[in-house]
Design a protein around this nucleic acid. Structure first.
Lengths: 110, 110
DNA sequence: AACACAACTATATTTTAGGATACTACTTTA
DNA sequence: TAAAGTAGTATCCTAAAATATAGTTGTGTT
């Protein structure tokens, strides 16, 4: 193996950042790592997100096969969002993100 | 330990995404994981970034103690950007990002 | 002397993300 | 039967991110 190749391809990084980036996508996924949640449950957990934004991001994540949307067969409207199997493969990455964030805070503050 | 707490805090994720997120920051850091680089070298490696954007992101990353800017003591102007020690602590995270990106591509493409 | 390259800076413009606010259709609860 | 909750939709608007394009100061190259 010639030593010309870099370990990391910029494009790979950009692709992933597009998927989990932005103000909400990472947080939505992290919230769903905890457990599956209903629309308003997610909304409350995320705090200040508007329904317009939340639904838009949920659709994006669904399109990318990271979460699934299931309408419960009950009289009252109830929709459950959960990580797909593929979405669950993100858990270690999110874990790494969270730990680095904690390290970073220590470095910056102290 | 009561089982009320979630493993991941949404806010932690959002903080890190802010630092490595956006269209270029992650790619710049990944490029510098490879080796230290000069301004135009980075610019070429990143492809379509404009100098205005590149310098803005470099300043941001420098402010956050992830990279350092060193002016070489030569007659011709030469500036070298490299990861700081703290910046290097990002390497495992970027590695995880890249591998997940490759997995994701496989899943999406079939 | 003329031109190219280095590392930027300046100005103007476009694109996009996300927020504010209000509304709908349906159901459960008080 | 009125209010409150569920899961969204519809419009409008703004601030931030990024691009396009051109210019600057200095050095090295032919």
């Amino acid at each position: 193996m010639k030593n010309k190749e870099k370990h990391f391809n910029n494009r790979d990084v950009q692709d992933v950042i597009e998927i989990i980036g932005g103000r909400w996508r990472g947080a939505i996924l992290a919230s769903l790592c905890d457990k599956e949640k209903r629309f308003n449950e997610l909304k409350r957990d995320l705090g200040s997100i508007t329904p317009r934004t939340l639904i838009k991001e949920l659709k994006y994540l669904e399109m990318n096969q990271l979460i699934s949307r299931k309408v419960e067969d009950t009289k009252a409207l109830s929709v459950i969002y959960s990580l797909t199997k593929h979405g669950k493969s993100l858990e270690p990455l999110i874990g790494t993100i969270v730990s680095w964030g904690q390290l970073h805070r220590k470095v910056i503050l102290g």
